[in-house]
């Protein structure tokens, strides 16, 4: 499973991330609308969609491939795949996590291909120069994907997971909470897989 750094005690709390997420909501909704128009055949938004998707895709790919040059190559391939599949975009889903899921898949394919050829990058000088800021942005993209998955769960599952993250026991405790949490986590995982195609 692609972990979402920051969820379990990262540098920023879930509450802070969620708050920031609400601020980015407008931008995300704009991207959703642009993607829906592109899926419908409106070519005039093509450049704008590309411009908005490129930075998070590049960040994610560099972070996953852990190699700046290969990450950039993977991001370019991912952009081709994302825009090739633009007509399949389901407008009921958020566009950015959908696109990042394709990018993540592309990166995984590249990594597997390199592993098969025993070409894992070893040159430390070429390794990603990822700053804390860049990592923060990657974390934020993944967090948004996780929050979108969380939004698909039932109220009970959502409350259970959120109270776990915020260390609030709620009314139930012990074995009941543990079982409920395990079930909710299982459903979150399968929702994440269903929505974004990654996470086994």
């Amino acid at each position: 499973m692609v972990s979402a750094p920051g969820v379990n005690g990262g540098s920023r709390g879930l509450r802070e991330m969620a708050h920031e997420d609400a601020g980015e909501g407008a931008g995300d909704r704009e991207l959703d609308a642009l993607m829906a128009r592109l899926a419908d055949g409106d070519r005039s938004v093509f450049d704008e969609v590309f411009r908005r998707l490129w930075p998070p895709t590049l960040r994610l790919c560099i972070s996953l491939v852990r190699h700046e040059a290969d990450g950039a190559d993977a991001a370019q391939l991912a952009m081709l795949k994302i825009l090739e599949r633009a007509a399949d975009y389901d407008r009921s889903r958020p566009a950015l996590p959908w696109a990042l899921a394709i990018a993540a898949w592309e990166c995984r394919t590249l990594k597997r291909w390199r592993q098969r050829r025993h070409e894992d990058p070893v040159d430390e000088s070429e390794r990603t120069q990822g700053t804390g800021g860049e990592q923060e942005l990657v974390n934020r993209d993944l967090m948004r994907a996780a929050l979108a998955s969380l939004g698909e769960l039932s109220d009970l599952d959502r409350d259970t997971l959120l109270s776990t993250f915020w260390d609030e026991g709620g009314s139930s405790s012990g074995a009941t909470l543990r079982k409920r949490r395990e079930r909710a986590l299982g459903r979150l995982r399968s929702t994440f897989r269903r929505l974004y195609g990654i996470g086994e």
Binding site: L38, G41, F46, D47, F50, W54, Q76, M79, L80, I82, L83, E84, R85, A86, A87, D88
Partner: peptide, 21 residues
């Protein structure tokens, strides 16, 4: 230039995918 090339390639992939679909 790389990015421009990627944009052009993405555009043609998009059109081909639409045509196939």
């Amino acid at each position: 230039k790389d990015l421009d090339r990627t944009l052009q390639r993405a555009r043609s992939r998009y059109e081909w995918a639409r045509a196939r679909r």
